[in-house]
Write a protein that binds this DNA or RNA. Structure first.
Lengths: 256, 256
DNA sequence: CGGTTATTTGAAATACGTCAATTCAAGTGG
DNA sequence: CCACTTGAATTGACGTATTTCAAATAACCG
């Protein structure tokens, strides 16, 4: 019974600043870049920054500054005055935030480091994208990322509003596996450096219930959880539980 | 006991195509426009279009086309294969959709007319905004609207994930009052041409529970509901119920 | 008026949250 | 290496919010 989605942040997410794979992680998220853009991005390596767990990387109402995540996990969230918290979105290495200027102020969310985090300052990247015009590859790639972001938020809304706890957790685990997998042939699972409280705040569930659902998933041999490391043992059955729709489809007619 | 948030769409939202106030409605949503832009917008009056309740105005995965709402209510939503529905957002006269090209495809949502709807084709508006560059007033105004949109979605996520049913409904009614009020000195209430099923799908609640919460709000003399017409009788107490935060605040520190 | 759709209500089931205590894992200082 | 502390995971018992089921009005529409 010793399985858990334990913290483990300090162990596995000690700042891997000298990790040569970090940059590759970033680039994989920017589709369709040419050698010019890649060279430009590599210049950004200079402006790194580290954040300790719990640090507020972007306060509520504060003007946004763009960053890319090299390592660690980040939460975009809102905390109500009575302490309730909702996590809009969890960001993993390769993700970025703070690009849509001023969007943060209106949306009244804060960005917080969940684990130890290492970022690169992407201000220069945003400037470069603007300079090359909206048709440039970089701007296109960033727009694509923003659309991904938005699609993820929509998916989260469905999850929050219309899925059961079992469906929520299954859906969440599958999403996280997809987003953290660094390539093909990776059947060995993935790290999930989140407390059950954090998972609960992302799914709109109490910590106790998250725990029970995880126990159930373990009991059914659908996933294995050990020290913050997750293995999805039966992806098909889990996807069925997650109420996942078939990926995408063509356009449809108009009238009901 | 006969109060209800009844349909009433066909009665009150019979297409007011000759309503001279329609254009004013549109313009109030575009802050900071000069005479040039207003003139341009008025040219758009030509391309109107009508939709009957239930019509799919933009199918899932379909390429977006920009519209502005002159009259009627519209739902951006997602329907799961088992029939469950989540409404991301309800659009009221003066709102627009379909501007962020391709965003719809990834987000896999459909746009559906809730009531009878009248739109103007805003393609020309989008083109004009692009032509004047991202610094033009029109582009700025549209970007501002999009930020509003996003902020509203965030607010919805908090509502879906962390508010109780009573809080959800109170919050929803206040939001709708704010968004449909056409100006100051309007204490008389507002039309809410939505089915309780629709409200439920926007709040992640069952229709039965929506009904019970509304009855409770009526019983407490917080709101009055008659034939799709809503009066908020005690805004302060209702806002307290809605777990509403103080409007906005300055920037905040950084570390926890 | 008959047919349809929406609202309303009660009773019962259930999913989920809260409370409180225990266990477990990891770190810390002696 | 060992108490000791701390934070997270785990578990049981219990309360409650919300859903589901079913049926009865009520409003609307042609």
């Amino acid at each position: 019974m010793g399985a858990s989605v334990a913290d483990g942040a300090r162990r596995a997410y000690r700042h891997p600043s000298d990790d040569p794979a970090a940059l590759a992680l970033l680039l994989r998220r920017f589709p369709g870049l040419g050698p010019l853009e890649i060279e430009q991005i590599q210049c950004l390596e200079l402006a790194r920054r580290r954040w300790r767990p719990g640090m507020v990387m972007l306060g509520e109402g504060q003007e946004a500054h763009p960053y890319l995540l090299l390592s660690g996990w980040v939460s975009r969230q809102r905390v109500l005055s009575d302490g309730r918290r909702l996590i809009f979105d969890l960001l993993v290495p390769g993700d970025g935030f703070g690009f849509a200027a001023d969007a943060n102020a209106r949306a009244r969310r804060q960005v917080v480091a969940v684990t130890a985090v290492e970022t690169v300052d992407a201000e220069a990247l945003a400037v470069l994208a603007r300079e090359c015009g909206p048709e440039g590859r970089l701007a296109q790639a960033m727009a694509a990322l923003q659309r991904e972001d938005e699609a993820r938020l929509m998916e989260s809304m469905v999850r929050l509003g219309r899925l059961t706890a079992l469906e929520k957790v299954s859906h969440f685990l599958l999403e996280m596996e997809r987003r953290t997998s660094t390539g093909p042939g990776e059947l060995k699972g993935f790290r999930l450096p989140l407390t059950q409280q954090t998972i609960g705040d992302a799914l709109g569930l109490s910590i106790v219930h998250v725990n029970r659902v995880l126990r159930h998933l373990r009991g059914e041999s659908l996933v294995s959880l050990q020290g913050g490391f997750v293995r999805i043992l039966d992806p098909l059955r889990l996807a069925a539980l997650a109420a996942l729709e078939p990926p995408e489809r063509a356009a449809r007619g108009s009238a009901v």
